[in-house]
Amino acid sequence: EVTIKANLIFANGSTQTAEFKGTFEKATSEAYAYADTLKKDNGEYTVDVADKGYTLNAKFAG
């Protein structure tokens, strides 16, 4: 089991951190699915991958 950390950075400057656990593939998929649920209210996002894929920095356009 691994933990994927998602740093969510919103256009207004606020941030949120979420963690997803499971296999690498499952946890990564859940992190992206969570970011997708936030698109409606926060706009499209881009992701910078860090820490060999164990940290995802998602920046929302607003």
Rank of each mutant, 00 (worst) to 15 (best):
T55L: 07
E30K: 08
V49M: 09
T55G: 04
V47Q: 02
G22M: 00
N7S: 05
E44L: 09
K39Y: 06
F60Y: 12
F24N: 00
I9K: 07
Y34G: 02
A31T: 01
T3K: 08
F60S: 03
F60D: 02
D41A: 13
D48G: 08
D48N: 10
T15N: 07
N42P: 00
K5E: 04
S14P: 07
V47C: 06
D48W: 11
N42T: 03
Y45A: 03
T17M: 10
K39D: 01
T23I: 07
D36A: 06
A35M: 15
A27N: 01
N42I: 06
K5G: 04
T46L: 09
E44K: 08
K39M: 11
A61D: 12
G62N: 08
E44V: 09
T15G: 07
N42A: 12
T37H: 10
G43V: 02
V49H: 07
A61G: 13
Y54D: 04
K59H: 14
E1Q: 13
D36Y: 00
T17S: 10
L38Q: 08
E19D: 08
T17Q: 11
T28H: 06
A61I: 13
A35I: 15
G62I: 06
G53Y: 01
Q16G: 08
K40Q: 12
T15A: 09
N12A: 04
G62T: 07
D41T: 13
K39L: 06
V2K: 05
S14Y: 13
A35N: 04
A31Y: 03
N57L: 07
T46D: 07
S29E: 14
T3C: 12
N12M: 04
G22V: 02
G53H: 03
Q16E: 12
E25P: 06
V49P: 06
Y45M: 04
N57T: 13
G13N: 06
F60T: 01
T23H: 06
K52G: 15
I4D: 00
E19T: 12
K52L: 13
I4E: 00
T37E: 12
S14M: 14
E44I: 09
T23L: 09
G22S: 04
A11Y: 08
V47M: 15
Y54I: 05
F60C: 04
S29N: 12
T23M: 07
I9Q: 09
T37F: 12
E25G: 07
N7P: 00
T3P: 03
F10E: 01
A58H: 06
K26N: 12
K21T: 13
N12F: 04
G62E: 07
E44M: 09
I9H: 11
V49F: 13
N12L: 04
A61F: 13
A31F: 15
Y54K: 08
L8E: 01
T28L: 14
I4C: 02
S14L: 13
N7H: 12
V47N: 01
K21Q: 10
A18Q: 13
E25C: 11
T23S: 12
A11H: 09
I4Q: 00
L8S: 01
N57W: 08
T17C: 13
G62W: 06
G22K: 00
G43C: 06
K59Q: 11
Y32M: 10
K39H: 04
E25N: 09
T46N: 08
G22I: 02
K52A: 14
A61E: 13
I4H: 02
T15W: 10
D41Y: 12
N7K: 09
A18M: 15
E30W: 05
T17Y: 13
A58T: 09
S29V: 10
Y45H: 02
D51F: 00
K39Q: 08
A33W: 07
G22F: 02
F10Y: 06
T15F: 12
K52I: 05
Y54T: 06
L8T: 03
G13P: 00
A11E: 08
Y54A: 05
F10C: 06
V49A: 07
K59D: 05
K26I: 11
A61C: 12
T15I: 14
T15C: 15
E30F: 06
D48Y: 11
E19R: 08
S29K: 15
V2T: 06
A50K: 12
D41G: 09
L56H: 03
S14I: 14
F24R: 06
D51I: 00
A27C: 05
N7W: 07
E19V: 13
F20K: 01
A11S: 10
I4K: 00
T37R: 11
G53V: 00
A18F: 15
T3I: 13
K59A: 08
T55E: 07
K40H: 11
E44T: 10
G13W: 02
K21M: 10
Y32Q: 04
T46M: 09
K26T: 12
V49G: 04
G53W: 01
G62K: 08
K5V: 14
S29Q: 14
N12P: 03
V2F: 05
T3Y: 06
N42Q: 13
E25L: 09
A11I: 09
A50N: 08
T28N: 06
E1F: 14
G62V: 07
T37Q: 13
A31P: 00
K59P: 03
A50V: 14
A27G: 03
T46S: 11
Y45T: 01
T15H: 10
E30S: 08
A61R: 11
K21P: 04
A35Q: 02
A11R: 08
A50W: 11
